[in-house]
Design a protein around this nucleic acid. Sequence first.
DNA 1: TCGGTAATGGACCGAATCGTCAATAACGGG
DNA 2: CCCGTTATTGACGATTCGGTCCATTACCGA
Lengths: 207, 207
Amino acid sequence: MARPREFDEEAVLERAREQFWTTGYAGTSMDAIAAATGLGKGSLYGAFGGKRQLFLRVFDAYCARIADAVADGLTGPDDGAFIRLCAHIRAAAAGIAADGLHRGCLLAKGTAELSEHDPDVTVRSRRTLERIATALAEEIRAAQRHGDLDPAADADELSTLVLAVLRGMEALGKAGMDGDRLERVAETAIGLLPRTGQASQAVPAGR
Amino acid sequence: MARPREFDEEAVLERAREQFWTTGYAGTSMDAIAAATGLGKGSLYGAFGGKRQLFLRVFDAYCARIADAVADGLTGPDDGAFIRLCAHIRAAAAGIAADGLHRGCLLAKGTAELSEHDPDVTVRSRRTLERIATALAEEIRAAQRHGDLDPAADADELSTLVLAVLRGMEALGKAGMDGDRLERVAETAIGLLPRTGQASQAVPAGR
DNA sequence: TCGGTAATGGACCGAATCGTCAATAACGGG
DNA sequence: CCCGTTATTGACGATTCGGTCCATTACCGA
């Protein structure tokens, strides 16, 4: 009935995300996004409404994607829970260490730039971290059930601490900290997790 | 010999810092700084060179200030080292929790926005965190000497982990995490520090 | 085949951007 | 008392900003 879109919305959002990611919100112009996507400004505004709304679309998708990925990686039978938890912490460190250009995480960058003035950004950040913390807490509880982590530990508090370590590693990586050192942070954190009993048995798959 | 300055350079830098802090680098215009400081643009450019150089001046001063403050707070006799360490972690959490508007830390914000493209920013961030890590490591070594922390722990690795927790709490605070929860993160981190011997004696000055 | 509907592309708008410049003003050494 | 040197002011320029608008185009149901 009407003229169909000529562009792939997902692809456009991807390009826009790349722009916002590398130059930030204020540092990205709609002209730059138009140039990067090949769209005319009319199409851009017609399809997404404006800069802010476009950013929110991009940010939303990004948040959902990483929260889903974390939840996926931290789900499974109790007897693998502790190993999955350790692997996740190590993978986070390795991922940041491998990011030689310090691109970092769009969630962190967007939150740092905008959360102070934009409640819509704050609520998205908060909920995303909440989802990650919940996934961590579930996995910690599973590890406790299986006897790998001390059942006396408060899983919710422990998960929030782990989340803080994860976000802290991201911040350290952005500041240019050495990759090896970041991975040692991950190992140190894993080594400090409250194991069952008093004897701290060997941590699986250490460095 | 020549006409003297009419403005207080420190005061101008303070105003400029406030602007960069709240609206970021790209989001802050030189006109806004001129308006905030009362200076004409000519004076601004004459005295500081340009936007980038002004930001670097501001950023430098900020970094030096917080690194000095941390080093100050973490210096003293061995027998108070562990208490000072705990107090510092708690104070960081409390400070973030008290920041109801989520203003956060200029070091974190500036690094997030600019470190990817500006090596001058990266090196300043890295060195600042390095100084803080060193201060933490010294204090940890002091606590080990005094018998509060396990002498078998690697003080450097432990200090980097504590630094990650500190920066992580900042990130969580920016995302709108509850103040109480942040302070519990601090307590959990303190509770996980490797104490002397196998029995974990009571942590001083808990919640 | 024709008309209603929506996408397209880019000219266009006013405001804001960083930075410059020239006229003017204030100081102190000679 | 004057001159060299530097600070001050704000108008100005070239460019870029977010956003609008409209003539044109492409589709599809009737």
